[in-house]
Design a protein around this nucleic acid. Structure first.
Length: 463
RNA sequence: UCCCCAGUAGCUCAGUUGGCAGAGCAGAUGGCUGUUAACCAUCGGGUCCGCGGUUCGAGUCCGUGCUGGGGAGCCA
């Protein structure tokens, strides 16, 4: 029971016995009325199911209450009783109903199906719909599960900076953070003079917390970040957002195999958590959003993740005889179609592809002994392709320095990152997982804009 | 950024060969003793995305812009 005396609808629906004097508050989903009886479906977001409120004409203001439109906010006190009709176990026989906030017929969510495109135009109201209610309950529950997983594994949660001067090269365009006057910026020799800016240097919003995460892993052994990440790429797809949340664990004393092991345990754990703790919402997604979702998640939770090297993957793709749109050749990155072929047709389940050519991966990934591949891993899963990527990090000071130069990154700009290798360096590994993409996988939602409360994409920062 | 598709009532959509603008839901009114996106009857509701063009005549054909969606690239 809450401080105002109300019971959450989820708790009311889970009752084991009838109860007098129950108080619930929530928003009207539908109103139905007969001559001598009225029904209101009331939802407070605590669960997918609405509770049925039954009004007979003896309830004060019977007519007025039943004129409340979909979207209105009500306080209902009455008795929780077993429902005589099919469709629900419990219902509330109302004694008194108070209109907290009325709604009129202009309320944009009607009691019928809307397109997700339309609902994006009313992002402030869409969490009151069934699908988005389920999505954002899942988002909350899985956030909690992720923290719990890492905390129980002894990982330290670190808040890496949002504003940063470190451009994690190759991770995408940075949003600029500046206080300079855009109309009249300070110039030195015709160039923009960033030393006169707020931080005294060029800064932007973080594209990854990994570099700072590595510094903390070299102090706390096992750490993770879980925070907002920003990419200013002009990407217009169902899988990209300018602002998203990323999970980045980093482990000291861990090689690539340890990294893969953590990734596998993590994914399985979260899938099991979702099936166990979000059963009602998952059942909804399974029925309405992605048929077969539950089988997919249960399959992942008990799958044995395979591993193959990039070189093997290229050999298999080359020999399979499949007509791909993009050519397969050692040194080219794997395309989405290649990744899906590997996980769906070759392996038939999750597969780590490891040891990619150094030329197509980031400078901080550890150079293998062959001198031409790096200890990188991408986890591929059926239907999606790549779901997470990670690597063992280059822990040798001289090799990292050389790799930075090859990638045209000035070692001076990342002196502190090199310092981690200067004193007490150790093998370490980590991976990055886009939270929204993971949510898409778990819920079956097909557009990243529909798993973020208020999505930011090129040309759209409204709400 | 590139390629493709779409835009018609508040919402979801139909609209034939270029010839009077339509349905369901929502809304209003009435009916119905327990409904389940209730049901039945009646009524009201339009800048056919904007601009320009072709035509006797354009929701329909052409050009262009805007918005949205799908795909690609970039990437998580």
């Amino acid at each position: 029971m809450k401080a105002d005396g109300r019971t959450r609808i989820k708790a009311a629906l889970a009752a084991t016995a009838p109860q007098e004097g129950l108080l619930v508050k929530g928003w009207v989903r539908t109103v139905r009325r007969g001559k001598g009886v009225g029904f209101i479906a009331l939802n407070d977001g605590s669960c997918l199911t609405s509770i049925q409120v039954v009004l007979d004409p003896l309830v004060p203001n019977f007519d007025e209450i039943l004129k409340v439109k979909t979207g209105g906010c009500l306080s209902v006190s009455g008795a929780l009783v077993e429902s005589p009709a099919k469709g629900q176990k419990w219902e509330i026989q109302a004694r008194q109903v108070r209109i907290i906030g009325d709604a009129d017929e202009a309320y944009p969510l009607q009691k019928k199906r809307h397109t997700f495109e339309y609902l994006r135009t009313v992002a402030h109201l869409r969490p009151r719909s069934n699908t988005f209610g389920a999505v954002f309950r899942m988002r909350s529950a899985l956030s909690h599960a992720i923290h719990r997983f890492f905390q129980e594994c002894g990982f330290l949660y670190v808040h890496t900076p949002i504003i940063t001067a470190s451009d994690c090269e190759g991770a995408g365009e940075m949003f600029r953070v500046t206080m300079l006057d855009a109309a009249r910026p300070p110039l030195t020799n015709g160039e923009l003079d960033w030393t006169q800016d707020f931080f005294g240097e060029k800064t932007g919003l973080t594209v990854s917390g990994q570099l700072q995460g590595e510094a903390f892993a070299a102090a706390f052994s096992d750490i993770y970040t879980f925070g907002p990440t920003f990419r200013a790429d002009n990407s217009n797809t169902s899988r990209h957002a300018a602002e998203f949340w990323m999970i980045e664990p980093e482990m000291a004393f861990a090689d690539l195999a340890d990294d893969c092991k953590l990734a596998e345990e993590f994914l399985k754990h979260i899938c099991r958590y979702a099936l166990e703790h979000c059963a009602e919402d998952i059942a909804f997604f399974n029925e309405r959003i992605e048929p077969g979702l539950i089988d997919k998640l249960e399959g992942l939770a008990r799958a044995k993740f395979q591993t193959m090297t990039y070189t093997e993957a290229v050999r298999i793709l080359d020999a399979c005889g499949e007509a791909f749109e993009f050519p397969v050749a050692w040194g080219n990155d794997l395309q989405s179609e290649h990744e899906r072929y590997l996980t769906e047709r070759v392996v038939g389940g999750p597969v780590f592809v490891i040891d990619y050519p150094a030329s197509i991966k980031a400078f901080y990934m550890r150079l293998n002994d062959d001198g031409r591949t790096v200890a990188a891993m991408d986890l591929l899963v059926p239907r999606v392709g790549e779901i997470m990527g990670g690597s063992q990090r280059e822990d040798r000071h001289d090799v990292l320095r050389q790799r930075m130069r090859q990638s045209r990154i000035d070692p001076k700009s990342l002196w502190w990152f090199l310092d981690i290798r200067r004193w007490g360096t150790c093998p370490h590994s980590g991976f990055g997982l886009g939270f929204e993409r993971f949510l898409m996988y778990i819920t079956g939602m097909q557009n990243i804009r529909d798993v973020i409360p208020f999505p930011r994409t090129p040309g759209n920062a409204h709400f």
